[in-house]
């Protein structure tokens, strides 16, 4: 539906719904923190951003041009390769997967003994992998400054045309 629809507003709303659904799915997968974030940031913030952008650019998509089969083929190949990759993964939910046997148990015991807060995700996020979080802040900062830098031209348009700064 997202592919077919030409009204971008609906597309954006649908993608918001999709985000929300995925948040729900995260809950069933025990990832409550992620679900919160996805609901707030993915479904909420992103949709607002999209709406803002739509308000500035208009919301109708032109009719799609001549279809070429290439994207479909690429998509199929991608999916096939990924599924081939997935075959080798430990079965879904298996407790013996290497990912659950190594490193992860230390986090759980470590959170109890070293950090002392109940939420393991927060513990890992803030301490063991705190540096990632710092980097994440960096990313937000970059995006913020980037958006300001890109859009301030628009808020205060310059008079001179872009071409004549030669010399």
């Amino acid at each position: 539906m997202i592919i077919r629809l030409q009204n971008l507003l609906s597309v954006v709303m649908l993608s918001g719904v999709f985000s929300l659904l995925s948040a729900g799915m995260f809950v069933t997968l025990d990832a409550v923190d992620v679900a919160f974030t996805e609901a707030a940031v993915g479904a909420g913030l992103t949709t607002i951003l999209f709406l803002g952008a739509l308000a500035l650019t208009g919301s109708a998509e032109k009719a799609p041009r001549q279809r070429s089969p290439l994207p479909l083929i690429v998509m199929a190949v991608l999916a096939a390769i990924l599924i081939y990759g997935v075959i080798g993964l430990p079965p879904f939910g298996s407790a013996d997967a290497p990912a659950h046997r190594y490193v992860m148990p230390e986090y759980i015991s470590g959170t109890q003994t070293q950090i002392g807060i109940p939420n393991i995700v927060s513990a890992v996020l803030a301490s063991y992998r705190g540096f990632d979080t710092l980097g994440e802040t960096g990313v937000i900062f970059t995006a913020g400054i980037g958006v300001i830098l890109l859009l301030r031209r628009r808020l205060a348009p310059r008079v001179s045309p872009p071409e004549d700064d030669a010399g």
Binding site: F131, D132, G135, E136, V139, T142, I145, G146, L150, P162
Partner: peptide, 26 residues
């Protein structure tokens, strides 16, 4: 994974930097 995070800092900023050429050419 930390590599990915830094990669994104670097990538996002370079997208913006490239776009700054719009003063000369859209």
């Amino acid at each position: 994974f930390n590599l990915f995070v830094f990669l994104e800092i670097f990538s996002l900023s370079s997208y913006v930097l490239v776009a700054m050429g719009a003063e000369r050419d859209r």
